[in-house]
């Protein structure tokens, strides 16, 4: 382990005073981690709010969750909400952050009425110039769902675009 890693602060430590931290401090920072329960009620909300008519006579619809659950289960079960992430980065949500990319992979289907462990880390936070948006930060982080056998069920790599307010 390098001295840099030894001195690396945790999410909780950084959250205690997130003002003015350099972008590099967030590289490889582990999320607090947590769990997420995939419930049938939210699954129904997802289906109805995206125009998906569910066949109530199909048994699979009572077993498997909508795959987009990978998105909200990882974000909501990571131990940090979207707002927490922006707070950590000292980023004002009123600047209009946007999801740029979302790359998902599944080893197996997500199950309804089941709890998964969630963990992951921030890959990088870099600042750059966008032709369309001006000065931006690009946040790259990965999260995974782990089952009770400690097997990774699915993972997702998020890239968020964070427009910066012009000074």
């Amino acid at each position: 382990m390098t001295s840099l890693n030894k001195n690396k602060k945790t999410w909780k430590e950084l959250m205690s005073n997130p003002k003015g931290l350099p972008n590099q401090v967030f590289s490889n920072l582990s999320f607090p981690g947590g769990t997420f329960f995939i419930d049938s009620h939210t699954n129904n909300l997802i289906n109805t709010s995206t125009g998906m008519l569910v066949d109530n006579e199909s048994l699979t619809n009572f077993v498997y969750a909508h795959p987009i659950f990978l998105f909200n289960s990882t974000l909501r079960g990571s131990g940090a909400s979207i707002q927490d992430i922006f707070d950590l980065l000292d980023y004002d949500v009123n600047n209009g952050p946007m999801l740029g990319q979302c790359n998902m992979s599944f080893r197996s289907r997500l199950l309804l009425d089941k709890e998964y462990k969630v963990d992951g880390k921030i890959v990088s936070l870099i600042e750059k110039e966008s032709k369309k948006l001006g000065r931006i930060k690009v946040l790259d982080f990965k999260l995974a769902l782990i089952d009770e056998f400690k097997s990774k069920v699915a993972s997702v790599d998020y890239i968020w675009i964070l427009p910066l307010k012009e000074l």
Binding site: L45, T48, N72, L75, R76, I82, Q83, V93
Partner: peptide, 15 residues
């Protein structure tokens, strides 16, 4: 309506 629902699903307050 669907966006309001998704704000709850995601716990995302982005205005």
């Amino acid at each position: 309506d669907s966006m309001d629902t998704w704000a709850k699903i995601l716990d995302d307050p982005n205005p």
